[in-house]
Computed example of a mutant assay.
Amino acid sequence: MRLILSTGVRRCGKSSLMLTIADELVDRGVSEDNIIYIDLDKHGYRNIKSADQLDALIEEKTMDIKGTKYLFIDEVQNVDGFEEVLNGFRSEDDYSIFVTGSNSYLLSGELVTKLTGRYIEFEIYTLSFEEYESMKLFYKKSISSNPLEELSSYIIDGGFPRSIQFDSVADR
Rank of each mutant, 00 (worst) to 15 (best):
T68N: 08
T68R: 02
S91E: 15
D23G: 01
K69L: 07
I35K: 02
D23Y: 02
D64F: 08
D39Y: 00
E32S: 14
I65A: 14
V85N: 08
N87V: 07
K42C: 02
S91T: 10
L57V: 08
I35E: 03
N47P: 01
I38D: 08
Q53P: 11
L57P: 11
I36Y: 01
K69T: 00
E75M: 06
I38Q: 08
V30A: 05
N87Y: 04
G29Q: 04
V26A: 07
K49D: 13
R46V: 14
R90M: 03
D33T: 08
V79M: 01
N34S: 03
D64N: 11
V76H: 06
I38E: 08
R46C: 09
I35F: 00
S50W: 00
E59M: 06
K69V: 03
I73H: 05
G67V: 09
G81A: 09
D52K: 04
E24I: 04
D74I: 00
K66F: 05
Q53K: 13
L86S: 00
D41S: 10
K49F: 15
N87S: 09
I48P: 09
S50D: 00
G67W: 06
D74Q: 04
S31M: 01
N34R: 02
D27R: 14
N87F: 03
R28P: 01
F89L: 03
L54E: 12
R46W: 01
K42Y: 02
T68W: 03
E75N: 12
L25H: 07
V76N: 06
G81W: 07
G88P: 11
Y70L: 11
E84Y: 15
F82S: 07
G81S: 10
D39G: 01
N87M: 06
E59K: 12
D41H: 06
K66D: 06
D39I: 01
A56H: 07
G29I: 04
D52I: 05
K49G: 11
V79Y: 02
D74A: 03
D80E: 12
G44F: 13
V85W: 05
N78P: 13
Y37I: 10
Y45W: 13
K61R: 15
H43I: 15
F82Y: 13
E60Y: 13
L40F: 15
I36V: 13
M63C: 04
Y37K: 05
L86Q: 00
D27N: 14
I38C: 11
A56R: 10
E59W: 03
D23H: 02
D27H: 08
R46M: 10
V85F: 10
Y45P: 14
I73S: 06
F89G: 05
L40G: 11
I36N: 02
Q77M: 12
N87A: 08
F82R: 03
Q77H: 15
I35M: 01
M63V: 00
Y45K: 15
E24D: 15
R28V: 00
F72Y: 06
F72P: 02
I35A: 01
T62W: 02
G44N: 12
D33M: 04
E83M: 00
N78K: 15
V26E: 06
S91F: 07
R46T: 14
I73K: 03
K49C: 12
D33Y: 10
Q77F: 12
V85M: 11
L71W: 05
M63D: 04
K61C: 13
T68I: 11
E59I: 03
I65G: 15
L25C: 05
L86N: 00
L57H: 10
